[in-house]
Design a protein around this nucleic acid. Structure first.
Lengths: 222, 222
DNA sequence: GTCTATATCTAGATAGAC
DNA sequence: GTCTATCTAGATATAGAC
């Protein structure tokens, strides 16, 4: 039990490998970044890289974690003060796009493995439970700090539903080839008011049973 | 220009490779079925297989095409006669699940490449334009043969929107680990009435502007 | 426990000979 | 059109140094 101020040697190496991998992913994309090149650029052996990371996929997870951190940091300030639901959602979703933007060119190849059900990089996998929790926390904050009137039944599930919207947006963004992903931005700008109005309308008598059934179904399926 | 009754020799080889590949995909899944094993089982060389199919992905596309045919055939009869929209949609979506059911075990790995934006197996790629058209035709038939009252503006886009629902269902199904994919069936059974009611309600005065804006947004984004 | 080096395997993909 | 040989890259195994 040494109270050393710096990280343990193993942890340092691990960090070095991750940093190198993330840098190369960013510079060259997923496929072009081989385990050999990561090891070489980090000045370690291939075996050592595999000693710390069971597969290339596991390195990608670290990549996601950092984007996730960017996302949280990018909207923390704007979400600190209470505001309208639509304002907050707009901020959270745009911050998400901002965090991913530098990687759009390569996002496709990352996404492929992430979308695979069994993959450790899937946002629904056990391995990504931490990243998922942190990501959902953003949308919990979106709802909790909202000054808008909300249906009590909806309120409990809303953070998770908005997180799913964020996942859906990501899915669209990955396939969005418009310059600067302008279409994704437009989707956010125009869909958020729609969601806001829908949430407001959900309290109407005609829509109430429909909303209740939809929520019940959602709970049964997740 | 020979008017030979049988296929040209090249076409025969191509068929042989496809048939073998599809059979092995079905028996062993995507990853376990290597180009080598396909070639060996078909009695040709690896190089020959690559002569006809530029990549393994292109062989997968043929696999999809056959599932798609199953889907169309599986609901053609039930859709021949006019009926209610919800009845038709239910039939079409369950037929889709039926067609995919035998492959659920392996669906994940297929799905990974299909979800990749650049991939030729993506349902949105140029290469799959044929399969996509055939698949959408099912939902066009769902709408066209419907006896339910439909908003005129919605009617034009509805087939495409329902096809997107089918894609969404597929996405859920791939990740559905419940026994016999019971949850996906439940999703269909309970979501279809919801969709039906939503379509009916879309003609209400309070919802009209919302529906119009949603449709306009959809058209701007596709 | 941390790390290297090397050899080897597997599988997608390609080149060039025939 | 077809084959064999070869390349690349992810992944594993092993043996050993510290």
């Amino acid at each position: 039990m040494t109270a050393s101020p710096s990280l343990a040697r193993g942890e340092q190496t691990k960090q070095l490998i991750v940093d190198t991998a993330v840098r190369l992913f960013r510079e060259q994309g997923y496929e072009k970044t081989t385990m050999r090149s990561i090891a070489q650029a980090a000045g370690v052996s291939v075996g050592n890289a595999y000693y710390y990371f069971p597969s290339k996929d596991h390195l990608v997870q670290e990549f996601y974690r950092r984007i996730q951190e960017q996302h949280s940091a990018g909207c923390a300030e704007a979400l600190a003060e209470p505001s309208d639901l639509d304002r907050r959602l707009l901020v959270a979703l745009h911050a998400g796009l901002d965090a991913m933007a530098p990687y759009h060119e390569f996002a496709g190849s990352f996404f492929a493995t992430a979308a695979t059900p069994g993959s450790p990089t899937s946002p629904f996998s056990d391995e990504s439970v931490d990243a998922r929790e942190r990501s959902m926390a953003i949308f919990r904050s979106v709802v909790d700090g909202s000054t808008s009137k909300l249906d009590d039944e909806l309120r409990g599930d809303l953070p998770e539903l908005l997180w799913l919207c964020h996942m859906g947006l990501t899915l669209y963004w990955v396939h969005d080839t418009s310059p600067g992903q302008a279409k994704s931005r437009m989707l956010v700008n125009r869909a958020v008011p729609l969601v806001d109005r829908l949430v407001a309308l959900s309290r109407l008598r005609v829509l109430r049973p429909l909303v209740r059934e939809a929520l019940a179904l959602y709970r049964a399926l997740r």
